[in-house]
Nucleic acid binder design. Structure first.
Length: 242
RNA sequence: GCUUUAUAGUUUCCGCG
């Protein structure tokens, strides 16, 4: 409605306004609406740019419509970029298809596109998901060698891997390493390690981390509380959970 | 001059295998 009202008042949405709208539709899984708006904007004489096409490609990849994504790429003749590659690769990783992810990664490099922190991190998450920690670490090494700094997300993926492997001491090591490199753990990083503590029954450590995150200025979210409550309930600490 | 748009990570529950 607002979008229409804007037009009625003689303000023509530009490519950014359309893309904002299109991307939101994609994020709400309203893909066909997004695609039709994309075609509509060209009818209004607004040309698509790489951002608008990439956002639709990402939406299509997320719902598994890779073939549709490929045809959109062809129709709009979008030169390859790392966002689009990461969208495809993320889906391959989520599906555990690391062979496809690996192929796309190399295809991209051959086109002369350089992987960024996001892309390396995506690859690492895929390998962690299929429990191939060696390959995950291999990509971490490549990233560092290439002069790209790992992010909080990069390390959180490893923290999560070690937590889920019940190697809490390794998870702690990575968490500390992240801090020693000057990175500031965010809420997700704290929640991840906290879940590892909880699942291993280190409830005192979980509460210690809760204090730590509060003093670091993070407000616990619903996931934080779900995590703590679950770990207490599983061990019968009903009153503490209450 | 400023500002708005695209890619990665955490819990529970549920479904499927």
């Amino acid at each position: 409605k607002l979008f229409m009202r804007m037009q009625q008042h003689g303000i023509s949405p530009d490519v950014v306004a359309y893309t904002t709208f299109i991307d939101s539709l994609c994020k709400m899984s309203l893909l066909s609406e997004a695609v039709s708006l994309m075609f509509k904007m060209t009818q209004f004489g607004i040309s698509l740019d790489s951002v608008s096409v990439s956002s639709v490609i990402d939406g299509l990849c997320k719902v598994g419509k890779m073939d549709k994504a490929v045809s959109i790429l062809e129709i709009f003749n979008l030169p390859p970029n790392i966002y689009v590659y990461n969208s495809f690769i993320s889906k391959f990783c989520a599906d555990g298809n690391m062979a496809a992810a690996f192929n796309s990664f190399h295809e991209m490099s051959e086109l002369g596109l350089c992987a960024d922190c996001f892309l390396y991190t995506t690859m690492m998450s895929g390998y962690c998901k299929i429990r191939e920690i060696n390959m995950a670490c291999c990509f971490l090494g490549k990233m560092i060698k290439g002069g790209i700094e790992p992010s909080v997300t990069t390390y959180t993926i490893l923290v999560d891997y070690y937590c889920k492997s019940r190697e809490v001491e390794n998870a702690e090591y990575i968490f500390q390493k992240m801090i020693s490199e000057g990175l500031v753990p965010d809420l997700v990083a704290y929640n991840t390690l906290m879940d590892g503590y909880g699942k291993q029954g280190f409830l005192h450590k979980a509460f210690g981390l809760l204090d730590m995150m509060k003093s670091a200025g993070h407000s616990p979210d619903n996931i934080t509380y779900n995590t703590i409550i679950h770990s207490l309930m599983v061990r019968g600490f009903v009153t503490e959970a209450k």
